[in-house]
Design a protein around this nucleic acid. Sequence first.
DNA 1: TTCGATGCAAATAGTTTGCATTCTA
DNA 2: TAGAATGCAAACTATTTGCATCGAA
Lengths: 165, 165
Amino acid sequence: MTSSTSAASAASAAPAVTSVDEVLALVRARGGRATPSRRILLEVLFESSDHRSVEDLACEVQARAPEVHLSTIYRNVEELERLGVIAHTHLGHGPATYQLATIAHSHLVCERCGRRIEAPEELFADLARAAAERYGFSIDPRHFAILGRCADCAQEARDVAGGGG
Amino acid sequence: MTSSTSAASAASAAPAVTSVDEVLALVRARGGRATPSRRILLEVLFESSDHRSVEDLACEVQARAPEVHLSTIYRNVEELERLGVIAHTHLGHGPATYQLATIAHSHLVCERCGRRIEAPEELFADLARAAAERYGFSIDPRHFAILGRCADCAQEARDVAGGGG
DNA sequence: TTCGATGCAAATAGTTTGCATTCTA
DNA sequence: TAGAATGCAAACTATTTGCATCGAA
């Protein structure tokens, strides 16, 4: 095992699951059951490259199996997160979003226009090091969004505020 | 041009209000009114050094004026935020928290035990610089929490996971 | 006197829970 | 068969909104 992993993935020994069947095997291995709704949810997750809200996921799952209930999705994402297969992120306000742990990354989110920019993990290298050194704190950049202003909105704000000198 | 201000305070030209009366004057100046509920809310905010949820604030306000309604607090924090007097932060899950803009700072929040560590703005200097250089993005560290594991919980996780290796 | 602010109730969004039923292992 | 998972409804938390009334300026 390459144990010099970044702060983001140090916490749990997440197996590198790469297919729906592997995850379902993992579910069974821990005493859980491979149900249709779980399989479909996983299919949707594996086909998504972006962060998805539970409602979002529910829509896609229900397109294939209309009887699957929202609460089932909630229970399943919770379970899949416990297994380390997916991770959630809080994007400022609004619902939590989920994505495969293997492709998890943080986002820069503009508080004004809502624009999202994918942030590679290395962007947090310095912060991770400083937090660890000073407070012993292991940051997990996948689980929070960096809020602020995107280039355009920051420029607009500057135009307004700086007009009079 | 002193454009090398920190990312956190660049966006709005926030007047350095330091007392309840100054804020109320500011409220009046923009056409608003100095009401008892606003005064009390401001008193509570000026006496708080920590981040407070709206419900939290409501409890303290209502201790002095029981008739003040929760929705009034919501409307007032919104107004005070627009004025740049207070700022909000999203602490992972749970309600948004508010604090005076002058003492606003970010927090490291443990996702496991909920512990909060105050993070000085300089901790984000490198991240702010990198985000600005690469994406033109101005981060606002006051408005989001850095999630992860505190020293104790990270250690526990290591004990559990690393037992065999 | 005017219109911004409030109290209250009800709506809304996001999420969780209790329980009888269904279905995997 | 056992008990994990589901569907459904209802509770719950956080927040917003409509509206008649109140009160600051």
